Simulated scan of single mutants.
Amino acid sequence: MPPMRSGGFSTTARQPLSMRIIRAPTLARAHELAVRTVLEKGWVLETENEEATIECDELALEVAAPESAPMVSPASRFQQRFLDAYAENLLRGSDAKFEYDYHRRLFDWGERLSAEGKDVHVDQVDYIARKLTEAPTTRRAVAITWNPVVDENLDDCPCLQLVQCLLRDGKVEMKVVFRSNDILSAAGSNMYALVHLQKAIADRVGAALGRYTHIALVPHVYYLRDLDDIEPFCKLGTAIQPIPEVCRACRKCPRASRV
């Protein structure tokens, strides 16, 4: 079906569905299945920044044992050394300068905010650990990243919005919500680093590591920008059968001439 124009955005026809739930034994497999879902079930959409994407309905990735190997898909461009550094930056911070970073948003939330004449500095990770220790059945061990004072005017604003931890059956579970998530290039790194954060919180609480649930409200793939990164997941159409637009752009296997 030819693309349609809607509100300045180009998109293929879609039939909205309910949230798709993916249960996988490892982070690596969850990442692979998420990439496959977006590429096979999604539709073309041009973003407000005029970038070509394949967008999909909401995804919930559930991994019962998130530290189980492999945590990184061999198809991912980002492998162990990069991901270890990424996780360390989330936990410890970095000297690099960005419009925002998740370490500061989680460990020092409150930029440009004040209360009772003092600048706001909230260590939300410390709060989560204390709350779980003080009230093991709590549902309030939550951290947010969005800061309207800052983010409404940023070109690049946080995708991760919320982190919730629960202490259940002696294990710390983590649930995270992304308003938007680049499933191909970012989700693997996001999950890897956040599970390291989950482990750090569990260690502080003195509990084991429990389930990790990763919710992407608008999962997508930049299928033109990251075309070369799709091939290792797709395996020339043997592992993934993408929607026609992806194959026509790629043209690296016979499937491109059949769709």
Rank of each mutant, 00 (worst) to 15 (best):
W43C: 01
V44R: 14
V44W: 05
V44M: 08
V44F: 11
E46N: 11
T47Q: 12
T47L: 10
E48G: 15
N49M: 11
N49F: 12
E50L: 09
E50G: 13
E51N: 13
E51K: 15
A52W: 10
T53G: 03
T53W: 02
I54S: 04
E55V: 01
E55S: 08
C56G: 04
C56L: 02
D57G: 07
E58L: 04
E58M: 10
L59D: 05
L59R: 09
A60D: 00
A60Q: 05
A60M: 07
L61H: 01
L61E: 01
L61C: 03
L61I: 10
V63E: 01
V63S: 04
A64F: 00
A65F: 00
A65Q: 03
A65Y: 02
A65C: 02
A65I: 01
P66N: 02
P66H: 02
P66D: 00
P66Y: 00
P66V: 00
E67N: 06
S68N: 03
A69E: 04
A69P: 04
P70K: 08
P70Q: 08
V72M: 02
S73W: 03
P74H: 15
P74T: 09
P74F: 11
A75Y: 07
A75S: 13
S76R: 13
R77D: 06
R77C: 05
Q79L: 05
Q80I: 04
Q80V: 12
R81S: 09
R81A: 15
R81G: 07
F82L: 08
L83Q: 10
L83I: 12
L83Y: 10
D84C: 06
D84W: 06
D84A: 13
A85V: 06
A85F: 13
A85N: 12
Y86M: 10
Y86F: 14
N89F: 10
L90D: 07
L90K: 06
L90W: 04
L91Q: 08
R92W: 09
S94L: 05
D95F: 06
A96C: 11
K97A: 11
K97V: 10
F98W: 11
F98K: 15
F98G: 07
F98N: 12
D101F: 01
D101R: 15
Y102W: 07
Y102C: 07
Y102F: 10
H103G: 08
R104Q: 05
R104H: 08
R104I: 02
R104N: 09
R104E: 07
R105V: 00
R105I: 00
R105Q: 04
R105S: 03
L106D: 02
L106E: 01
F107M: 01
F107S: 02
F107K: 05
D108F: 02
W109T: 12
W109R: 13
W109C: 09
G110H: 12
E111K: 14
E111C: 03
E111P: 01
R112W: 11
R112Q: 06
R112G: 03
R112D: 05
L113S: 09
L113W: 11
